[in-house]
């Protein structure tokens, strides 16, 4: 594997959940949770996946860790196609790819001690440790900022933030290369969120980790990510490095999302130029045709209802799937219009 090859590469990945109806459970449709998305994650970077409920970001996380099997497309991890790999062959790869979950209450078994929870990966994967599992676990507990002497305590004896640290410690046990974090801080109090965000950043530097952070909170995603992908109804509508995404967002949806985030500054509310979307996110069971955002988009034209805009390069490292992007450099925008019109 060369330096420039991505650690994780996803190509046209799809996941459709069948929907049945009627007497004979005929399949009448599919929830297109993820409907043809492609992205790369490079070593040492953090990719943020952001979107509202039903956009498919969590399904994406479960697909790339192969907790789900994709309906179509390819998932390549370290040069190996894992899209349809069986559980047996996946097992050794699971060491390198770990997941952090949202809820630090339900994702830890209440009947196991912290030592057992964090030590479980060693036993399951049969990894030998130099000074025994206990020492290894205590080292990790210390690494995530927990007291190593709490080895024999149970999850309920810890606060929400500490439990999330336990969850993180568990994923770190086998020194993974890639960590998928699904809403890692959204269940936590504000003051604790910041602690966990900082911890994730420190660990990344220290252990040379690669992250995919899935979240609905744009501010958290901006803080933690190098590159950000915005999802809407199973599609990626915009990908860019953090700076250009947040300073020159091109997709109308991205603009609307950012405009919707309440700003902790009472003056801003008076003189801020707002974009307000109408209605809720449509159901992924029956998504709008062509550009899926056209039902809520203020810039939508006829073409948006007929032709699906491709995810096209608009600027260096900045891809957008829109017929009428905002803030777009003159030339590429004109080109797209010419191409599609």
């Amino acid at each position: 594997m060369s330096e420039n090859e991505p650690l994780l590469s996803v190509q046209n990945m799809e996941k459709h959940f069948p929907v049945t109806k009627g007497l004979f459970k005929r399949q009448v449709g599919a929830v297109k949770a993820v409907d043809g998305i492609s992205f790369d994650v490079f070593k040492g970077e953090t990719l943020g996946l952001v979107g509202e409920s039903g956009c498919g970001k969590s399904t994406t996380g479960r697909l790339v860790t192969r907790l789900l099997e994709p309906t179509a497309g390819k998932i390549v991890f370290e040069g190996q196609d894992i899209s349809h790999m069986g559980q047996g062959r996946l097992r050794p790869l699971r060491r390198d790819m770990q997941m952090i979950f949202q809820d630090p209450y339900s994702s830890l078994n209440p009947r196991h001690t912290v030592g057992a929870i964090v030590g479980a990966p060693y036993r399951i994967q049969g990894v030998k440790t130099e000074n025994g599992v206990k020492k290894a676990v205590q080292d990790i507990l210390e690494l995530v900022g927990l007291n190593p002497e709490h080895y024999n305590r149970y999850p309920h004896e810890f606060s929400g933030g500490q439990r999330q640290r336990i969850g993180i410690a568990r994923t770190l046990a086998l020194k993974p290369k890639l960590i998928i974090a699904d809403e890692p801080v959204s269940a936590l109090d504000v003051s604790i969120q910041a602690q966990v965000v900082n911890l994730l950043e420190d660990l990344q530097k220290e252990l040379d980790l690669t992250y995919v952070v899935i979240a609905h909170d744009l501010s958290v995603v901006r803080h933690i990510s190098d590159r950000v992908a915005v999802m809407y109804l199973g599609k990626i509508v915009e990908v860019a490095d953090r700076k250009s995404l947040y300073s020159v967002p091109m997709h109308p949806y991205t603009n609307a999302l950012m405009s919707a985030v309440p700003v902790p500054d009472p003056k801003v509310r008076k003189d801020r130029d707002r974009i307000r979307l109408k209605g809720d996110v449509p159901s992924p069971l029956n998504p709008p045709p062509a550009c899926r955002f056209h039902t809520r988009c203020w810039k939508a034209q006829d073409i948006c209802k007929k032709v699906e805009p491709p995810l096209a390069q608009m600027a260096e490292g900045h891809q957008v799937a829109c017929h009428f992007p905002e803030n777009a450099p003159e030339l590429p925008a004109a080109e797209t219009a010419a191409k599609t019109g």
Binding site: E52, P262, L277, V281
Partner: peptide
């Protein structure tokens, strides 16, 4: 609620 709905 979702962020765009929250704004509404």
């Amino acid at each position: 609620l979702d962020v765009t709905v929250q704004a509404q």
